[in-house]
């Protein structure tokens, strides 16, 4: 039979608890750096009324995206380059999206023509709020063919 001295057991317990207390303290300090509350812009937001946007591609600077309109059909494409996150520009004459940081070029449907960008630009889902605003949902990505047609306005 193995006998362990009471003194040894107590010593190990004592050492482990001091060590454990340290670990808990360190763990707590590290955990503090993972925020529980984010004061960030919501993923779902209004971008204005459908009639605010003319035909074609329009930049919405506050939200870093473009509205794409053709007649009563609306699409939302992200202006965030899929390479390393710069804001792309719309060059209507070419026409294509171009990124100033490392020169990626995208077709109007968001697919990559050239440059280092690994993925096409993202398209987001659209809906209409009860008070008549276009609502973008950044958390819901959609295909580039997705278009949203706001229902015709009812007379108030």
């Amino acid at each position: 039979m193995v006998t362990i001295a009471r003194r040894t057991v107590l010593k190990v317990i004592g050492q482990l608890s001091v060590f454990g207390a340290f670990l808990i303290q360190i763990g707590g300090a590290v955990r503090a750096f993972i925020p529980n509350v984010l004061y960030e812009p919501p993923k779902k937001f209004k971008v204005g009324k459908p009639e605010d946007y003319p035909e074609g591609v329009n930049f919405v600077p506050e939200h870093r995206l473009f509205t794409v309109r053709s007649a009563n059909e609306f699409g939302i494409i992200s202006a965030v380059c899929t390479h390393l996150g710069c804001t792309v520009r719309w060059e209507s004459k070419v026409p294509e999206f171009e990124c100033p940081c490392h020169g990626s070029h995208f077709r109007p449907d968001g697919t990559v023509i050239s440059g280092p960008a690994p993925r096409p630009l993202a398209w987001f889902a659209l809906s209409l709020s009860p008070d008549g605003y276009l609502v973008v949902d950044r958390s819901e990505q959609v295909a580039s063919t997705y278009r949203f047609s706001p229902p015709a306005k009812e007379k108030a």
Binding site: F59, P61, C86, T87, P100, C101, H102, P116
Partner: peptide
């Protein structure tokens, strides 16, 4: 200004070789 990236947007000289690399190696 998060909505406008300067054109061209360049890193300082000692990182520009990395910027050049990330632009060329996809």
């Amino acid at each position: 200004n998060p909505s406008v990236t300067p054109n061209p947007a360049k890193a300082p000289w000692y990182f520009l070789w990395l910027q050049e690399l990330v632009a060329d190696t996809t």
